[in-house]
Amino acid sequence: MSQYFFQQLINGFSLGSLYALVAIGFSMIYGIVRLINFAHGDVVMIGAFSTLALVTAGVPWPIILVFVLAVGAVAGMSIEMVVFRSIRGASQVTGFIATLAVSITIQNSALMLLSGQPRNFLFPAFMRQRVGVGGVNASLTDIAIIVLTLILIGGLFLIVYRTRLGTAMRATAENLTAARLMGVAVNRTVLAAFAIGSALAAVAGFFWGGKFGQIDPLLGFVPGLKAFVACVIGGVGSIGGAMMGGYILGLAEVLFVGLLPQEYSGYRDTFVFLLLIVILLVRPSGLFVRQVEERA
């Protein structure tokens, strides 16, 4: 039982890593422009297909990873420049509709370009082998996902909390006017947040095929939605919260399926959104956001 449990734990952490990667970018973008980017999930799809194309072309894996990060960054910056820049300061509804339009545009362009036929996509055989540690055996793919995600998130935290750019991003997210009065070139800072957040989402796409074995042009919808749930769990706009929300969601989902009787596993997504509703009712500001009280 405990071996089975640990295996599920690894599985949950691996799925949670994917959600965390997507959720962090989602949260960064919301934090800085105060608009929800519904096209964020589609960057996952773009990352997945870029990976497939490069694998097919025989590019070595480490270079693919770097390339996918770059593709994600470019995709994110394009979304910012084409859509968000023109609706800066708009209401939530405007942002919702505009980004939904972007999402539909990206999905349908991908459908026309790539066809709706799902593609098989697998990591190389050595990545799929299972390794045993003390009776627990996990696929190398899951372990790679967990480790690489931790490294990327570590890098992100260094950027956000230890660099001049990161400080400017946090300052801009909190108070746009004050940041401008400090001489921050807000457009560039916002662009950087989109680039970094979307690069992480694209890496989730890089892992996606390896984990699930199949990719299709509409695959971004579900991770986009779940990243939103993860953000609500952790507190929208908080990077650490989004990360924790992603891991909690991944673990909860896998444990729900793995530990409850088989006949409930079909209710996996129902469970996820039930969780969303409960959290919205109980802690609408998220589990990890302290209510900052402002002093006069």
Partner: peptide, 10 residues
Amino acid sequence: PEGRQIFQSL
């Protein structure tokens, strides 16, 4: 600026 507008979370 008016109202200080320091970055509270920093």
